[in-house]
Nucleic acid binder design. Structure first.
Lengths: 338, 338
DNA sequence: TAAGGTAATGGTATCGGTTCCATTTTGAGC
DNA sequence: GCTCAAAATGGAACCGATACCATTACCTTA
């Protein structure tokens, strides 16, 4: 029968320190300086012995400052998303905020629910990697004065910063590399682009730039990770263009994973048939002779997103980042050496 | 100059519906049935037009029910942790709770901070995958009546359910498989076991069981992912035991990643020298001829952890799971065919 | 028809803080 | 030593909900 000891409150600290609620509140808030050194010491001591910690719920209530940032992630199981989330979380903590991460599993319904929820918890800012088009809800946040930053994907009619990769540059770099290496025909494999502005941009740019480079090209879209159609597309692409040197460019990490499986299934020799992916993954170096990738600066992207938010929350405290689109880094491996 | 419209409150809804705060509160709480159909309709309508949503902060204040579960993850970049987190989150939502995930990057200091924080947000339950030994703080939670479940790793002197893999069984299964395949000498590679009871158990069991199976064996510990010592250990292990059939068993996913790199560095033929890992990873099938693994039932583990918590929070609403230690699944691939 | 019980609804204190305003203390200037 | 402003501290209302208790309305049953 252990007695359940409640968490101590500001009143108890005040009583023990021989001070008023107000002073204790000041001590734990922004106004500690206004207290005399002796009072500060008494409060510090009292709080220490009681193990007092302000109740954030109560704090959030009066001033509306929950010290919470909400984040919506489309697919938490994608290592790229995890890396970004990691960056966002670190940055939040640096600014004294906590992060509530909500994974939507690319489901607009879950996205809707999670947005409601984040609203109910009075988040002070929102980092959104959208799965659907939650315009309505995002506008609600905006009209309430809650700043929003879009991560990697735009949302129609929502005027907010979009932080992410410079998609044009990425595609250009990829094609330039492939052309340099002597590939003459490139197949672009992407996950379904409907829900993602980034995927659309990459796809469009691919077609545009492939033409410019004088490359033969085709595209294949993965419908919810079903690779059968792409297997087909890959085979016939090769049949059509070989013996010209052929390569596959993958629009993101998941596409790279799926295509790599297809290469093995078909017994295609990596390198002789080129393979390149956007997003760097742990294992890209491990599949012989290594898969060439374009790595995104995930930490920087995450930090920049938070910096945008902080600038809007407290314009004086933090400056607006100047750069919102970032360049990838080419990591060259054997899969693009014919 | 868009006017910043505040989020509407219960009072506004009450006024619009011509009802009292109390009734509106009942409508959104557990007591909706007590309201007459006509009142329910009026409130529903009012809430709808105002876009009202209860403020969780205020809710949490009075009743102490924040509807929040906190989770401490030692390393969010480990795909295994992500998979578990995913399971935990799903289960939480199912029970009407939200999850606040805190990543500690295996740093006890961050762990300490995050625990403080979760306390401040009045989480109603805690899922802990510990990085250090936060006994003190966990006891504070327990004495306040906040239930705790330990994930994968125990914490000394903290009496709480531990949900995770059956480590003895896992090691036994691995060694049995390796022995069956004809390997006669096994090197066990693990990350530093100091902070993790699971790593300790696996290591100890390995030594015990290898002896029982009559296998030659050795162990090597990775000090913060520095592989130099293990490279050394692996070379000399092979030098000592070859031409007997040798294999390496990796204690977790990260060890598998590092050892796979070493195999490539040394040009070791996978299979001829065996390789097996605990934790299934995306790419294990992709490195020819495929790496044999023991997969953990991550979703089940996550869900079970939450179920434990829910049972403690509301004993009547949810039953206590009977099984807390789970069996792995052997996924056999070419890396263990000599 | 009056008594008595239940269902439906409202009033108000309260949760643990913050914040505005009032009050007390302190110290500088003359 | 006295005045007066500034610094230090305290009092009390308030944030948006919940929960207990009181009240009103409506049926039964004697």
């Amino acid at each position: 029968m252990s007695s359940i000891s409640r968490r101590s409150t500001i009143i108890e600290v005040a009583r023990l320190a021989g001070a008023s609620k107000t002073s204790v509140s000041r001590y734990f808030g922004e106004e500690r300086d206004r207290l005399s050194p002796s009072l500060q010491a008494r409060i510090a001591h009292a709080a220490g012995t009681l193990g007092y910690q302000p109740n954030q719920m109560a704090r959030g209530l009066k001033g509306g400052r929950s010290k919470l940032i909400g984040m919506l992630v489309a697919d938490i199981r994608n290592p790229f998303s995890v890396a970004i989330t990691h960056g966002v979380e670190q940055a939040c903590r640096q600014y004294g905020y906590s992060l509530v991460v909500c994974n939507t599993d690319n489901d607009p319904k879950q996205e809707h629910q999670h947005l409601d929820l984040l609203g109910a918890y009075q988040v002070e800012g929102l980092v959104v990697n959208a799965s659907g088009s939650p315009e309505r809800q995002l506008h609600t946040f905006i009209s309430q004065g809650t700043p929003i930053v879009l991560l990697d994907r735009e949302v129609d009619h929502v005027a907010a910063e979009v932080v992410g990769l410079d998609n044009h540059l990425a595609i250009d770099m990829a094609l330039e590399h492939l052309a340099d290496q002597g590939y003459q025909a490139v197949l672009y494999v992407s996950e379904a682009p409907e829900q993602s502005s980034t995927r659309q941009k990459r796809l469009a740019r691919f077609c545009h730039a492939a033409k410019q480079h004088g490359l033969a090209y085709a595209t294949s879209l993965l419908a919810n990770s079903d690779s059968a159609a792409t297997l087909q597309a890959l085979s016939s692409f090769l049949a059509t263009h070989q013996p010209s040197a052929c390569a596959v460019l993958c629009g993101n990490g998941n596409a790279t994973l799926i295509v790599t499986r297809l290469f093995q299934q078909l017994g295609l020799p990596l390198g002789e048939v080129g393979l390149m992916g956007i997003d760097e993954l742990d294992w890209c170096a491990l599949v012989p002779p290594g898969i060439t990738t374009l790595a995104q600066p995930t930490d920087t992207i995450g930090k920049t997103a938070v910096q945008c938010l902080m600038h809007r929350i407290a314009p004086h405290a933090s400056s607006m980042p100047t750069e919102l689109s970032f360049s990838p880094t080419l990591i060259e491996r054997g899969s693009t050496h014919p």
